[in-house]
Amino acid sequence: MSWWRSITKRRSWQSFVSLFLVGVIASGAIAACSGGNSASNNTANGDKQITLVSYAVTRAAYEKIIPQFTAKWKQEKNQNVTFTQSYGGSGSQTRAVIDGLEADVVALALALDTERIEQAKLIEPGWEKEAPNNAIVHKSVAALVTREGNPKGIKTWADLAKPGVSVITANPKTSGGARWNFLGLWGSVSRTGGNDAQALDFTTKVIKNAPVLPRDARESSDVFFKQGQGDVLINYENEVILAAQNGEKLPYVVPDVNISIDNPVAVVDANVDKHGTREIAQAFVEYLYTPEAQREFAKVGFRPVDPTVAEEVTKQYAPIKTLFTAQDMGGWDEVQKKFFADGAIFDKIQASR
Results as ranks from 00 to 15, higher is better:
106 V>Q: 00
121 K>G: 11
124 E>Y: 13
147 R>F: 10
104 D>K: 11
150 N>K: 08
82 T>F: 10
124 E>T: 15
138 H>R: 10
113 D>F: 03
116 R>A: 06
103 A>K: 02
140 S>F: 00
106 V>T: 03
73 W>F: 07
82 T>E: 10
148 E>P: 08
135 A>S: 15
132 P>Y: 11
95 R>P: 04
143 A>F: 03
79 Q>G: 02
131 A>I: 08
89 G>V: 07
72 K>T: 10
128 E>H: 11
133 N>Y: 11
70 T>S: 15
154 I>Q: 00
87 Y>W: 13
121 K>C: 14
114 T>H: 05
94 T>E: 08
90 S>Y: 02
92 S>H: 12
134 N>C: 07
153 G>D: 12
147 R>E: 09
75 Q>T: 13
128 E>V: 11
142 A>I: 08
155 K>V: 12
85 Q>R: 14
96 A>V: 05
122 L>G: 01
151 P>C: 08
96 A>K: 00
83 F>V: 08
142 A>W: 03
76 E>Q: 15
82 T>N: 11
139 K>H: 02
137 V>W: 04
82 T>H: 09
125 P>G: 07
107 A>V: 15
129 K>C: 07
109 A>R: 02
122 L>M: 06
90 S>W: 03
127 W>Y: 13
125 P>F: 09
122 L>P: 00
94 T>M: 11
134 N>T: 09
106 V>P: 02
83 F>W: 15
134 N>A: 12
123 I>M: 07
138 H>A: 09
152 K>L: 08
74 K>T: 05
98 I>F: 05
86 S>I: 09
149 G>K: 10
99 D>M: 13
77 K>A: 09
100 G>N: 08
141 V>W: 02
90 S>T: 05
146 T>V: 06
83 F>M: 12
112 L>F: 10
157 W>C: 01
156 T>S: 07
82 T>Q: 14
115 E>P: 01
120 A>C: 04
88 G>T: 08
115 E>M: 04
138 H>W: 10
74 K>S: 10
138 H>K: 09
89 G>Q: 13
81 V>M: 01
141 V>N: 01
134 N>H: 13
159 D>I: 00
124 E>S: 13
150 N>P: 01
134 N>R: 12
121 K>V: 14
92 S>F: 14
146 T>L: 07
120 A>G: 06
97 V>P: 00
109 A>T: 02
116 R>T: 00
121 K>E: 15
158 A>Q: 04
113 D>S: 06
118 E>A: 13
127 W>T: 01
